[in-house]
Simulated assay, not measured.
Amino acid sequence: MREDSMTDRDFLRHLDDYGASPNRWPPELRAGAEAALARSPALRAAADEALAFDRLLSGSPPMVEDARIDRLLSAAGATARAVPQDGLVLLLLGRMPRRTVAGFCAALLALGWLTGGWLAGTLPAPAAPTPRGQELALLHDDVVTLFDGESR
């Protein structure tokens, strides 16, 4: 094998770079490519496959019926509607009816507006509750906790 002859690996790399048409190959590589093609049936098969691929790319795209596009889009839309969309609200609140989520978001918006007004000084602050001796809080259906203001 001569030093200037093209290896199979080089031929495949150049085939990927320049395509199957010899006209697109640089002139200094064409002679080595022809010699490599003459000695290797595997390279000829690779060149034939690249030529078929080049023809596929250079041809006009196949015509697609409008009805087929409509069927594809409706199937994709039906599939997307059937799968629940996991968004931020779902991650924070879990699965809820949309009305409940909308009410919760409206309540949070109102709470933010009121808090912003109190902090900016445009709304009067809520009156401080009068201290009581003891308060009960229901943290769970089965557990009642007594808050008397003492830290424990």
Rank of each mutant, 00 (worst) to 15 (best):
E135D: 04
L72P: 01
H140Q: 13
E49R: 15
W25T: 06
L37M: 14
T100S: 08
D66V: 12
V101W: 02
A107D: 14
R39L: 14
A50L: 04
R44N: 09
G103H: 07
L119V: 08
A137K: 02
V143N: 00
E65M: 08
P84H: 03
D66A: 13
E34R: 03
L138K: 09
F147N: 09
T115Y: 05
L12D: 05
R152W: 02
S40C: 14
L139W: 00
A82N: 10
A35S: 11
D8W: 00
L37G: 09
R39E: 15
T7M: 10
A128W: 04
H14Q: 12
G77L: 11
T100V: 13
L92T: 04
E49K: 15
A107K: 05
P97H: 12
D10M: 11
A42D: 15
F147G: 00
P26K: 12
E34M: 00
L138Q: 15
M63H: 12
P27W: 06
V101K: 08
W113T: 15
D48H: 13
L51M: 10
R55P: 00
S21F: 04
L43T: 03
A102C: 08
D48N: 12
P126H: 04
A46T: 09
P84N: 06
F147V: 07
G103L: 14
A75I: 06
L73W: 02
L51P: 00
L136S: 01
M63E: 14
L92E: 14
L146F: 06
P84R: 12
A102M: 10
A75K: 05
E3Q: 09
R39I: 10
R44M: 13
A102T: 11
W118G: 03
E28S: 01
W113S: 13
W118L: 06
V101P: 00
A36F: 05
W113K: 06
V64P: 05
G77W: 01
A102Y: 12
V101D: 01
P41G: 11
D8N: 14
F104V: 10
A80F: 06
P41Y: 10
G87D: 15
F104H: 07
L56F: 12
P41I: 14
D4Q: 02
H14V: 03
L114Y: 11
C105V: 15
P61D: 11
F147E: 02
Q85P: 01
Q85N: 02
R9E: 08
L138F: 08
L90V: 14
S5N: 09
R95Y: 06
Q134K: 10
N23A: 14
Q85L: 13
Q85G: 01
G117M: 11
A120M: 00
A47M: 09
G103S: 13
P26W: 13
L138T: 07
R71Q: 10
F147A: 08
V83W: 09
L72H: 13
L56D: 04
G133D: 03
V101M: 12
S40R: 03
A120Q: 01
L73S: 09
T130H: 04
Y18H: 15
R81H: 06
L93M: 03
